[in-house]
């Protein structure tokens, strides 16, 4: 199969690359660009560990073709913050003990960000709805919910 030349904007940086037309964004992020913060598991849109932001919306990168992402803004966990400049969600996830094995956490944080960006003052029930596509097997979700509620409190006055 002929590879497609693609121009992808990821974390504010433009990448020119060749990708198989049928390759999902997840494959390109992890294999071609080394952005391994986006995780791989079920590959059929059930678990949410591969969640990234596409024009600000949380999407499963395992189901999205890389070719569909041209001209759109992609944000991965690597684009959210680093050790020096943590996003408030990253801070509250640490503070509230929301992280155990951590494998679901990049997707969880990005799903939470997408939701808080649209709904800055959510109820716990709304956060539960927003994160219901992201499986976590370690935490029972409770401290994740605490962290997202706390981040909403931090973020709201900044808007």
């Amino acid at each position: 199969m002929r590879k497609l030349p693609l121009s992808l904007t990821i974390n504010g940086e433009t990448h020119e690359l060749l990708a198989e037309p049928h390759h999902p964004l997840l494959e390109v992020l992890r294999t071609q660009l080394g952005l391994i913060g986006t995780k791989e598991n079920c590959l059929e849109g059930e678990c949410g560990v591969c969640t990234v932001l596409l024009d600000g919306m949380a999407v499963n990168s395992c189901l999205l073709l890389a070719a569909q992402c041209q001209g759109r803004r992609i944000v991965t966990i690597e684009g959210l913050g680093g050790p020096e400049t943590l996003h408030p969600l990253q801070e509250t996830f640490v503070e509230h003990g929301a992280v155990q094995c951590g494998y679901c956490i990049p997707g969880m944080i990005l799903a939470a960000k997408a939701y808080l960006d649209q709904n800055p003052e959510p109820t716990e029930g709304e956060i539960r709805e927003a994160l219901s596509g992201n499986l976590c097997r370690c935490t029972g979700y409770q401290k994740i919910l605490d962290a997202v509620l706390a981040a909403a409190g931090v973020l709201a006055p900044m808007r």
Binding site: R30, L35, I36, G37, T38, K39, E40, T76, I77, E78, L80, G81, G82, P83, L86, Q90, F93, V94, E95, G97, V99, G102, Y103, I105, P106, I109
Partner: peptide, 20 residues
Amino acid sequence: PLPRVDAYGKVTGKTVYAAD
């Protein structure tokens, strides 16, 4: 109730798992 020692690597996506 201190934060775990590996928390920052995990929230920033820097922790390398076997699958990575």
